[in-house]
Design a protein around this nucleic acid. Structure first.
Lengths: 265, 265
DNA sequence: CCGTCCGGTTGATCCAGATCAGGGCGGGTC
DNA sequence: GACCCGCCCTGATCTGGATCAACCGGACGG
């Protein structure tokens, strides 16, 4: 029932997929499995995403089930993990790094629907095909689980289905917030909302001031906010001139005045 | 787990809510329960939404559970059913009519996130508060179920949770399509996509040509598509001049050339 | 070391859609 | 009947952000 049509158990791994799809950038996109030699029961126990995502719904005693069903993968940046429209054969839990999820129009325009970080699950599909393309923006580690294994896990552990429902509901709520942002807000409001949302999810600097880490290129942030990179650049300059933020480096911004951001968001 | 924080069982009915909240329009917004005198076991059996929404997950034998947990309400148009931010005490299944779901910014700008019709469930909340306001756009009948009753139903009938997950996943996918629409598409593309999506969900006319029914005011369609009503009007005129559609009446449009709409969507 | 490339920034200009303004029409009330 | 009020349509004008173009600086490979 859950994700409708039962997945066919084709054995294509993400590693194979990554080598099959044409590399979008001239930089190397090789992939390699890792840690395959470790004892199966121990792998998940030491996982940094152990308490997050689907895995958090399971108790320690269930770890063998989990380890048997999943397989970690180390991926370089700019590596596609799932492709929009392709048959959805597996789901992936992000263990580290960051991925962008996007949809593409026939003429090539792209809309990024979200960024996935540690604990997020990607590849859940309603029908047979993936709803979006997912691609690493930094080197990342993800954990692959086939659709059939996920279904088996849900049958054996009903809490997994509950967790899946909770995660999907949170995602739906976030998507509706993004609809509000794209449908109503000005460029300044979009950027302010984005920075605030990120700052709430990240740790402050050593001195206590909040900051955000932006490993993705500016064009991707723009594609998420419905803005061109030029517009994003101009808005960030205005925010810096207003004293609301400081650009520490290309990928790090310090929030000087959260209240000012709230006011413009 | 599912929708996180357990709902407190305050007994405020939607009928009470509708009279408590200030009526947004000078037109009457009275509400009244109906069919309360019918036999409890029989009510759901004859429901037009019996096979849809959450109820479709239950077999005929489970109908007494359903009838005991839910209560139908007849609502006039422009009646609020749930209010964004208010404590989420119940969910509602739409039996007939149409509602608009929207979010509001502090300065009053509104973004409609969706329209709900027969079979749709509204009021599912991630935290304690409703994520959006829901208001009838036509006279409607909805079926109220308290959050606690929903939780009890899910415990007794696991299939309900599976159905809920499937419905939430479909909604998430639709929300991501809307993000793509709002982030990338032009006014013409938005309207074409909207008409096509509606036509796929509605029955064609007697002569077989597809048509769509638009009972909501144009300003609401605009608020859904991120457009002003003036822009919507101009785009519809262009589509009509191009021979893609015909406006049969203010709330009914015939799709003359679906392929032309596909091309511009 | 010097090109080249790519991401980011800035300035100049353009345009899709917002905003402003006016008018028509149909349904309601008195 | 006359009046009012929403809703819709249309035209004129304005503007926020897109587009076009140029430049800068760091990362790379030779």
């Amino acid at each position: 029932m859950t994700f409708s049509v039962a997945a066919t158990a084709t054995a294509a791994t993400a590693a194979a997929m990554a080598t099959i799809v044409p590399p979008p950038a001239p930089t190397a996109t090789r992939t390699h499995e890792s840690r395959a030699a470790e004892p199966v029961t121990g792998r998940c126990a030491g996982c940094s995403a152990r308490s997050k995502g689907l895995c958090g719904a399971l108790t320690t005693g269930d770890l063998p089930d989990l380890s048997a069903a999943s397989r970690p993968l180390d991926l370089l940046s700019a590596t596609p993990v799932v492709m929009e429209g392709e048959e959805a054969t597996a789901v992936f839990t992000v263990m580290s790094g960051m991925l962008k999820l996007y949809k593409t129009l026939p003429d090539g325009r792209q809309q990024i629907t979200g960024f996935a970080t540690a604990g997020d699950v990607i590849g859940l599909a309603v029908g047979t095909g993936y709803a979006y393309t997912a691609e690493t923006v930094t080197a990342s580690t993800v954990c692959r689980m086939s659709r059939t294994a996920l279904h088996r896990l849900m049958e054996r552990h009903p809490a997994v289905q509950g967790r899946l429902l909770a995660m999907t509901s949170v995602e739906l709520s976030a998507a509706q917030d993004q609809i509000l942002l794209l449908g109503c807000k000005t460029a300044m409001e979009r950027v302010s909302s984005f920075l605030l949302a990120l700052s709430r999810r990240s740790r402050p600097l050593a001195d206590g001031t909040p900051s955000v880490f932006l490993p993705m290129p500016k064009v991707d942030i723009g594609a998420y906010l419905g803005l061109r990179p030029e517009t994003l650049s101009r808005v960030l300059r205005k925010l810096e001139e207003a004293g609301a933020i400081t650009r520490l480096s290309n990928d790090r911004i310090r929030i000087e005045n959260p209240a000012a951001l709230e006011a413009t968001a």
